[in-house]
């Protein structure tokens, strides 16, 4: 990858992607271009001023975090926690159970070729 591309990617790609996505979403909702001029102004400002681009980046990170928190929370309560019940009934790791000894015999080491 050339250095100019890396610089361009780091500096502007998020701004352009954000504007494109916002334009599509706006058109999808309103079926007109009434707000798109504002989006062009936003795009030009973010391309021109680094502080604006940074602000936009922080905003998107925050939105992303909220999104992932929501999705993970839903996943946790709808799928993960119910499976947790099954896990505790049928597949529970011996280390989590009360035992007179916690030694686990180990006979061999795993292969170096894989990360598991």
């Amino acid at each position: 990858m050339s250095l100019s591309w890396i610089r361009f990617r780091n500096r502007h790609l998020l701004t352009i992607n954000f504007s494109l996505a916002a334009a599509l979403v706006l058109y999808g909702i309103r079926r007109d271009f009434a707000w798109h001029l504002l989006l062009v102004v936003w795009l030009l400002l973010a391309l021109r001023f680094e502080r604006m681009a940074k602000f936009q980046q922080l905003l998107l990170v925050r939105v992303g975090r909220i999104n992932s928190t929501l999705i993970l929370t839903l996943f946790y309560f709808l799928f993960f926690a119910p499976y947790g019940l099954l896990y505790r009934c049928f597949f529970r790791k011996p280390a989590f159970q009360q035992r007179a000894s916690t030694f686990e015999e180990k006979r061999k080491i795993g292969s170096f070729d894989r990360p598991f």
């Binding site: 992932s68 993970l72 929370t73 926690a81 947790g84 598991f116």
Partner: peptide
């Protein structure tokens, strides 16, 4: 170390703790 085995431990620990380990789950999973 073997990251997949560590991940397995993490998942099983969260399963063991569920439904009370949401904060820890949200902190580690991303």
């Amino acid at each position: 170390e073997k990251p997949f085995l560590t991940f397995e431990r993490l998942i099983e620990t969260h399963l063991e703790a569920s439904p009370f380990g949401l904060r820890s789950f949200l902190a580690s999973m991303p």
